[in-house]
Nucleic acid binder design. Structure first.
Lengths: 192, 192
DNA sequence: CCTATTTCTTAACTTAAGTGAACGAATCAT
DNA sequence: ATGATTCGTTCACTTAAGTTAAGAAATAGG
């Protein structure tokens, strides 16, 4: 697991043994069971998550309905908006599978970053990349139909379609579960 | 104009006179006429934009149609994905009004950031904030209907509805111009 | 293993968005 | 000023998504 992390980080900065040890000594690795809730609506939190194994999802509860808006799988990171804005969380985060996560908190990050400018640099580059990616995803979403979005998802994250329940995928695609069922049937018919 | 910039920056870091002078000496301020194209599809660019006055928009040309996906107005910043990913741009950026912009390039930013760790810190915080905001916007988009999105826009960015052509707003809302017209008529009827 | 719950699909109906055509209004270029 | 293009609205029609209800399939818990 440590190697997976350091491989990931090496894409951004090269680390000395001292720096690696500093990270390990923080003791950030956590094993969590499927269904574990990491963050609840209304809660204040300083925790960020990096998925080493498994899948976590962010979802709102609106009028009693769960609305899933994001999945984070291997090598993906989530710092919930409530951590950045220091406000109570608008949404829930839970493990959709057994997970191994890196859980860090923002105070600790600030300390590490001021001690190792290299980490500060890595965090800046990483969040710039994530922002660029998020904007492209948003743009694609805006400019395509539900059907195109589903076909696009099959191409780009085929694993998600397999490992995640349909009704969670539906709201991720911005539609009702019924519509996703119908849409899938429609696609199957076209193929034949 | 310089004051507007330094007021903005002061929310993130406090600057010494030396640092302010370093920024001014970079000579980043640009006045641009309405209609000026800042970035074209296929073009490689290292430029980021910060809007001091006016409005710029990002749009794709898909099957001959312009699809506007974002507007940036006063105090908003755009670093196009092509700058981050070092790839040819997927979209266009143009001025929808006469603008005063700060135009910086990524090489220069890297140099400044390594010289002044304070700027590195500011950039990290800023992009984390923008990422959090972008995710919330995306979540809201996913979980609401075109009509709700339009009503939401009137609340959150009433200026946009005034200063930007309808057909550009439409694709920003993820719908066809015709649908926006109809939707507006529908809302007016409900009110009476 | 069996029941209870959740999840997924299908179908019928309603509502809204996509599409194409037509028209007036606004804008732009000459 | 005027003719041409672009822009916004309206209408009729098509297509797809929202909604409600019902039942089959899968899953979880005892």
């Amino acid at each position: 697991m440590k190697n997976i992390l350091f491989d990931f980080m090496s894409k951004y900065v090269s680390l000395t043994e001292e720096e690696k040890n500093a990270i390990i000594s923080l003791d950030l690795f956590r094993s969590l069971k499927k269904g574990t809730i990491l963050l609840k609506e209304g809660q204040k939190s300083k925790n960020s998550y990096f998925v080493l194994k498994g899948c976590i999802r962010a979802y709102y509860v609106l009028e009693g309905e769960e609305k899933t808006t994001a999945f984070y799988t291997e090598m993906e990171a989530l710092t919930p908006p409530c951590v950045i804005n220091k406000t109570p969380s608008e949404y829930y985060v839970s493990c959709t599978e057994d997970c191994i996560l890196l859980v860090s908190n923002s105070d600790m990050e600030a300390e590490i970053n001021s001690k190792f400018p290299k980490f500060e640099l890595m965090c800046r580059i990483l969040s710039e990349e994530l922002l660029a990616k998020e904007r492209i995803d948003f743009d694609e979403f805006k400019t395509s139909s539900p059907e195109q979005r589903y076909l696009n998802l099959i191409q780009k994250r085929p694993d998600l379609v397999q490992r995640v329940p349909q009704h969670q995928l539906a709201s991720y695609l911005g539609i009702q579960p019924h519509s996703l069922s119908r849409l899938r049937a429609r696609i199957l018919e076209k193929k034949t």
